[in-house]
């Protein structure tokens, strides 16, 4: 295990100086993204981009090595009947499945992301969270999706949450760290903004909305607030942070609206799988069905696409 020295600038931010969120304004702005109409070639381009940004996910208690292998096959062969499709960015699994996923993906240029730190509740002692992170990384995880301690955050123990993220970042080594805020449990957009700032300062490479286990999961307004936090962090420090909305984005049309929002908040530099991901399980097939519809003119059925 190698210890990566923390960068100089890892310092607890002053959360009292974090800008307050105009909730009505955010909701109105987010609603306006949904009125954009993306058609024809632009739609096909957007759909390809969405596919390349998907973290194909299975996070169920009933997951088996067989299920994970199936998911990896899906990641590699999205829909062979349609040549020229991009592959997804990563598959996202539990730590015990990392080895299996790594093996199944072989030489393909698809990352393995592992949730860690007692996902989804985060209710475990810090040593256990760090140990879990290290095991996942040692097994070959390229990316770690950690959850923050929402209870501590809501109690105002910001220092605890900050140190925890920084410690997990250290345990990640060279693996990328995505920090899940679980916005559905934070309650207000102000807290979402504060948690985003905290996570970015503590060393997150990505910030992520949700585990997918709590409703509401990702929404446009919450994602917009996080994107704005990323933008302001970039202006402040010059560091780019990635964004991953996860949970509840199950159709292509909604995903396109997320891309519109990304383009208009952070710009083109963020519009690659390196800086933006969708955490989803059923989104890929809907995107594939839309692409097939664009090609054939006929509305499609899930019956003719492999299960994910």
């Amino acid at each position: 295990m190698s210890v990566v020295p923390l960068p100089q600038e890892v310092r607890m931010p002053d959360l009292s100086r974090v800008a307050l969120v105009d909730e009505v304004g955010v909701n109105e702005r987010a609603a306006r993204f949904q009125t954009r109409s993306i058609k024809n070639e632009s739609k096909v381009e957007a759909l390809h981009m969405i596919l390349s940004m998907i973290d194909l996910t299975t996070l169920e208690g009933q997951d088996t090595p067989g299920k994970v292998r199936q998911l990896c096959q899906k990641a590699i062969h999205l829909h062979d009947a349609m040549p020229g499709l991009p592959h997804v960015a990563a598959v996202c699994v539990y730590p015990t499945m990392v080895g299996e996923a790594k093996k199944a993906l072989g030489n393909h240029d698809i990352n393995v992301a592992s949730v860690a730190t007692a996902f989804p509740s985060g209710m475990a002692p810090l040593q256990i969270k760090l140990e879990e992170t290290r095991i996942a990384v040692d097994d070959g995880a390229d990316e770690i999706d950690m959850v923050i301690s929402r209870g501590a955050f809501l109690q105002g123990e910001y220092r605890y949450v900050f140190d925890e993220i920084a410690a997990v970042k250290e345990a990640c080594g060279k693996a990328h760290l995505k920090v899940i805020l679980e916005t559905g449990e934070l309650g207000t957009l102000d807290r979402v903004r504060r948690a985003s700032v905290l996570a970015m300062h503590a060393g997150a490479d990505f910030i992520k909305t949700s585990t997918g286990k709590i409703q509401p999961a990702a929404t446009l307004p919450v994602t917009l607030v996080m994107l704005q936090a990323i933008r302001d962090f970039y202006y402040e420090t010059g560091r780019m942070i990635g964004m991953k909305p996860a949970g509840g984005i199950s159709n292509a049309k909604l995903a396109i609206h997320y891309l519109v929002m990304l383009r208009e908040t952070l710009g083109n530099a963020w519009m690659t799988p390196e800086w933006y991901r969708f955490g989803a399980s059923s989104l890929a097939n809907d995107v594939l069905m839309q692409l097939q519809k664009q090609a054939s003119g006929v509305y499609q059925s899930a019956d003719y696409f492999s299960k994910d």
Binding site: G297, V298, Y299, Q300, S301, A302, D303, Y304
Partner: peptide
Amino acid sequence: EQFASHMD
């Protein structure tokens, strides 16, 4: 046309 062609 749509009623007849929809794959689902």
